[in-house]
Write a protein that binds this DNA or RNA. Structure first.
Lengths: 244, 244
DNA sequence: TTGACCCATATTGTCGACAATAATCTACGG
DNA sequence: CCGTAGATTATTGTCGACAATATGGGTCAA
């Protein structure tokens, strides 16, 4: 059986990423502890680990809040991701086995089918996309890169997407970019793989930023004075375009 | 006044980086707690934060140990650093103010004087080098990059260096590389700054790896069966060359 | 002598309680 | 009516204790 803080970490992380805990919302230790039927100790540790993943911000003697990011923070995350994942692609071109590359290619086949079948929820497509990037990061066989990407940045990306309920109008474009990357891996061309990955993510960054700007503008229109006590960020769930 | 886990974090971090706590050494909660005159709670939190910084490894229900890295882990850190710091240099070329760049340049002047004066301890030179990279990372004005580099990777690099007691036989080379980077910043050439920084760190990686290999060989010569109970990694403190 | 099994010990995981600090509400004065 | 000061309440920071588990030593048998 797992240790308690670990379980709490994953449960809270899912709640945050899936928007069940809204950005800016306060995380009271006692309340959450009693809700999950544990003591404050393990829950406190879970919150600190969420802080390390940048999913919550804690101020000393004040408590923890779910992150409420702005455009700058969003850009920061994508820039860091561009650097790390570019390097991961470069390394993966040499480190991945033929079998791993083939597996990755098959994953893209599966994505193509999902898109063709038009499986309604971009929800699933997003998770599939994360899955691709997740596996490629793992393919670098670099524990530091894997940790930074999978444990920190990808969770934030998932949060961003859910927050915007962004649907990609060009999953086909993203898919073809993914295929190009896999092709570079097949040819063991690390330099090309890095270049393609960086362009891919730079594109995603621009899309995400414009989506955020739109959401911001929309929120400004339907503006209600958000109570400072429990400022539950106005959940603007309209459709925007994001390709990644 | 700061919070208790914060203080403990820094104190333990210094102890680890400076080698006062040797790689592989066990960190018993009760013992450390009584030593620092605190309870197990805050100390436990400090250890978890050290884990997030990759300075200790904790196994559930077994306890925490100071990291004992191998060549692979060392390479992983430098590769991640190459990616992140390259991006930081690129961003800094646009984000840093003229005053910040000038300040950085003056720091290098100070380094040059230190080298000319041959201030015995490469100790100080190392810290100066870290200072340069630290400030450049900050110059990116990207909170994610700063956090990943300053809080995680730089501490590990400091640990590596102390572990090898590596002295750089070419601090002049490193200095000229630093100057070239600053020059690129002055010209606001982000692309060049990234390229130079990546080459700079790649060079440092190769030096560190060969230094590690030498240390490994040396340790094999003076091999004593290290007690598994308190395996205090054979502190091989001989001179090697590392340029960074 | 060597190996495995069992028991004693030490350490970690978890809990509830107390102390210190921040946030909130109320009352008072301008 | 509004702003400020004080008191009250709630929440976090820290502590010590108990329970569960891993580690180490000793014993016994082969």
């Amino acid at each position: 059986m797992e240790t308690l803080p670990e379980q709490l970490l994953f449960r809270l992380q899912e709640q945050i990423v899936r928007g069940e805990l809204t950005p800016g919302q306060r995380l009271a230790e006692s309340e959450l502890a009693s809700r999950y039927g544990v003591s404050r100790g393990p829950l406190r540790e879970a919150i600190r680990r969420l802080e390390a993943r940048r999913l919550v911000e804690v101020a000393p003697r004040t408590g923890a809040r779910v992150v409420d990011f702005d455009a700058e923070q969003l850009a920061d995350v994508y820039q860091a991701r561009e650097a790390l994942e570019g390097m991961a692609a470069r390394l993966a071109a040499q480190a991945m086995t033929d079998a791993e590359i083939e597996q990755l290619s098959q994953l893209l086949d599966h994505h193509e089918q999902s898109i063709a079948a038009d499986e309604g929820q971009h929800y699933l497509q997003d998770e599939g996309d994360v899955d691709f990037h997740y596996r490629l990061a793992a393919g670098s066989h670099n524990a530091v890169l894997v940790g930074m990407l999978c444990d920190e940045l990808y969770q934030l990306v998932r949060l961003f997407r859910h927050r915007f309920s962004s649907v990609r109008d060009r999953p086909i474009t993203a898919l073809s970019e993914h295929r190009a990357i896999v092709e570079a891996l097949r040819e063991r061309d690390g330099e090309l793989a890095e270049l393609l990955m960086r362009r891919h993510i730079a594109k995603a960054r621009r899309s995400a930023l414009s989506a955020f700007a739109d959401a911001q503008a929309n929120a400004a229109g339907t503006k209600v004075k958000s109570a400072s006590t429990e400022r539950t960020a106005t959940k603007s769930s309209f459709q925007t375009t994001t390709s990644d």
